[in-house]
Design a protein around this nucleic acid. Structure first.
Length: 177
DNA sequence: TTTAGAGAACGCG
DNA sequence: CGCGTTCTCTAAA
């Protein structure tokens, strides 16, 4: 669907979504035309859909379990058996800085962790630790963009958009894999 | 559309 | 415990 906006022609895309149950809660997968644009975790479906609506206020959100089925299955399997990895086509939407951070997150091996400081250094912005943390916090694609593998330099877990308990659980599961 | 100000999943002294 | 640093969002002009 195409809309005319003040800034010119903009495509307002349709996003299909579906959710399912996994060991750490309800998980929702959202698909745009070019790939997975969000993976959200929460207590129930309503919460997840509300979250999705906030993140994509201008998109046309359509519930469709069918088109999302395969990807959702992969995600749920990953939570259960992280050792097998999670390979999905992603549609990363964010500022250049955010994408730099998110892309780098994807290079962190399963079962390992890094720190916000180390992450800042590896994207070439050693002084941007706090900004890097903010970029992690705004990651819309849980699990596939493994922001849960970033911890504080002092050994603290740091925060997690979807609850530190889930972060702890994910790190633990990956370590055992 | 530009800009000023506040806040953020941090880390050091 | 407070401050430096970088990036984002919001409100207001």
């Amino acid at each position: 669907m195409i809309f005319k906006t003040a800034s010119g022609l903009a495509t307002v895309d349709t996003i299909f979504y579906g959710s399912g149950e996994c060991p750490i809660g309800q998980v929702l997968v959202a698909l745009s035309a070019s790939g997975v644009c969000a993976i959200l975790i929460g207590a129930n479906k309503d919460e997840l859909v509300a979250d999705l609506a906030v993140r994509f206020p201008k998109a046309n959100l359509v519930a469709n379990e069918h088109v999302v089925h395969d990807d959702l299955t992969k995600v749920i399997r990953f939570v259960d058996k992280p050792g097998e990895g999670l390979d999905l086509p992603l549609d990363l939407r964010g500022t250049a800085f955010q994408r730099r951070v998110w892309e780098t997150l994807r290079t962190i091996p399963i079962g390992t962790t890094t720190t916000y400081t180390e992450l800042a250094r590896s994207i070439g912005a050693p002084n941007s630790v706090r900004a890097v943390a903010a970029a992690c916090a705004s990651n819309p694609i849980a699990l596939a963009v493994p922001c849960h593998r970033v911890v504080g330099s002092n050994g603290d877990l740091g925060g997690y958009r979807w609850g530190v308990e889930r972060k702890r659980e994910l790190i633990k599961k990956e370590a055992m894999a």
